[in-house]
Amino acid sequence: MTIKYTFQGLLIYVVIAAYLLAFLTTVLGRKKTGNGLYLAGFIIAAITFGYRWYDARHVPFQNLFEVFLSMGMMVYPLSIFCRRSLRVGGETMDMLLGAILLFPAGFIFKAEPQKLPPALQSWLFIPHVAVYLMSYVIMAKATVQAFCQLKAKPAYTDENLVDPEIGTYRIICFGFPLLTLGLILGSWWGKLAWGDYWGWDPKELWSLASWLVYIGYLHFRYMFGKKHARINSCLAILGMSVILITLLWANLSKIFPGLHNYAS
């Protein structure tokens, strides 16, 4: 664990603090203050993202520091969209999620900007990584809903909002096209850069596995609806677990050597 004594590091810590304070104040019943802090955290996160883009001279999606920084910025718009369009709540947990997502950027991964190697200089770099990161954050929110369903605890008491089981399903339906596009754009890019649209690389196989778990979820839910709500939720949580492995373990562990591995 290292502390970053830079302007960028300072901004990240301010966002983490804002998200955590937003969470605490909301839990203590001061919803308005909580929302204000959450919005402030998002604005500073967006500024940090922009600053990093300017500083590194490429969109900050290259290494795990940049990936977590970007994801930490995506939580707030997702909360707003889910409440307004999908009628799914859970913003309080989103505030905590934002802080958790920024933690690795603040304390674990190195922030030194790197030059883009030839294979990353493709127009597909931005859409491929952007849709994946968005889908990961969306699926993380769906997982929180799934845990709420398992605990049989409604996350909120607003009549306009759906229950956590439906919440999980709606969010997964929203995120699944992005997950699919991430996989397809990655495959297309692989064809352009390396000559193969599928290389059986560990990271590719983990990402295929995570996509398949969500396909399993969608088919299972089509077959049984809400009858086996607990299994539905467990499948959603399994999907997120495989995504976590795809994002972290497959990149960092020497067990999975390959084109996407940073361990060496």
Binding site: G199, W200, D201, P202, K203, L205, W206, L208, A209, L212, V213, I215, G216, H219, F220, M223, V242, A250, I255, F256, P257, G258, L259
Partner: peptide, 22 residues
């Protein structure tokens, strides 16, 4: 559903084998 499940397990297995073996 079974076919999807089997492919998921095989993908995870393949990830442990490394690209050439997979």
């Amino acid at each position: 559903l079974l076919a999807i499940c089997l492919l998921t397990i095989l993908s995870v297995f393949g990830a442990f084998c490394g690209a050439p073996k997979a």
